[in-house]
């Protein structure tokens, strides 16, 4: 169980990114966090990942405070962030350096097979397409068998077809061990396709505006009437959450469609 209690994050420059935010996420739940640019959704993920300290409140995983990165929490960044000097296999095994070599190789082999990249194990990152690179990043996060997998707009830089493909793939992978998934996205379709629960963040400072648990059957068809109903509802919420930000941070809900 992941519990955020009254979490506040204020940056050194005084900007209040998150303001008394409370949230619980059950084991195996798929949670999507949506909101415009600068609403604090990436900050939220970085706090849970332990990459940045909270300014107030607590984040607990199974009763323990998160004070830094932990082995049971994995993170997939917006960009693949592969090490250019490591092969695909070595990139995927980067988090397993403490394991004996044969065990590491076995787990990497399994993970790469699981994301459909067995053939690419010996390749350099420069030889991969954007979608392949993000699969490697996914494998790298999964080989550690995290209880909680955080995803920060992981598919936003990909074309629509690859994105849909990877979304399906993510659900397959999730089904292996059923970790908790927390997915930050600005794509309502993505949130509705994947998530059990969608939290809408409102920016400046970041607060939870609303949350919905669309009772949609899986696998979800984006063209169905029910899906469209929830889509419209979420869009309305997002428009509500829209606050003209500082310069360069403006969010236009229409752009998120």
């Amino acid at each position: 169980m992941l519990v955020l209690d009254d979490v506040t994050k204020r940056y050194d420059n005084g900007q209040l990114a998150l303001d008394s935010l409370s949230l619980s996420v059950a084991p195996g739940e798929i949670l999507a966090v949506v909101g415009g640019s600068g609403c604090g959704k990436s900050t939220l993920l970085r706090l849970i990942a332990g990459l940045e300290p909270v300014s107030g409140g607590t984040i607990m995983i199974d009763g323990q405070r998160i004070l830094g990165p932990r082995p049971e929490i994995g993170l997939v960044f917006q960009e693949p962030r592969l090490m250019a000097w490591l092969t695909v296999a070595d990139n995927a095994g980067l988090g397993l350096l403490d394991l004996p070599a044969d065990e590491r190789q076995g787990r990497v082999r399994d993970a790469l097979a699981r994301v459909g990249l067995s053939e690419a194990a010996g390749r350099w990152p420069r030889e991969l397409s954007g979608g392949m690179a993000q699969r490697v990043a996914l494998a790298r996060a999964l080989v550690g068998r995290p209880q909680i997998l955080l995803l920060d707009e992981p598919f936003s830089a990909l074309d629509a077809l690859t994105r849909a493909d990877l979304q399906d793939h993510l659900l397959d992978l999730w089904d292996d061990n059923r970790p908790t998934l927390i997915l930050v996205t600005h794509d309502i379709d993505e949130a509705l396709t994947l998530a059990d629960r969608v939290v809408v963040l409102k920016g400046n400072p970041g607060r939870i505006q609303t949350e919905v648990s669309p009772p949609l059957a899986r696998p979800r068809e984006r063209t169905g009437a029910e899906f469209q109903h929830w889509r419209a509802r979420l869009l309305a919420e997002l428009q509500h959450s829209f606050v003209p930000g500082r310069k360069g941070e403006e969010f236009h809900p229409a752009a998120a469609i």
């Binding site: 990942a49 990459l51 830094g68 990165p69 932990r70 082995p71 994995g74 993170l75 960044f77 960009e79 962030r81 090490m83 980067l94 988090g95 350096l97 550690g144």
Partner: peptide, 10 residues
């Protein structure tokens, strides 16, 4: 960003 990947793996 690459250093952060290392941090995630402690």
């Amino acid at each position: 960003k690459l250093v952060e990947v290392g941090r995630m793996f402690r």
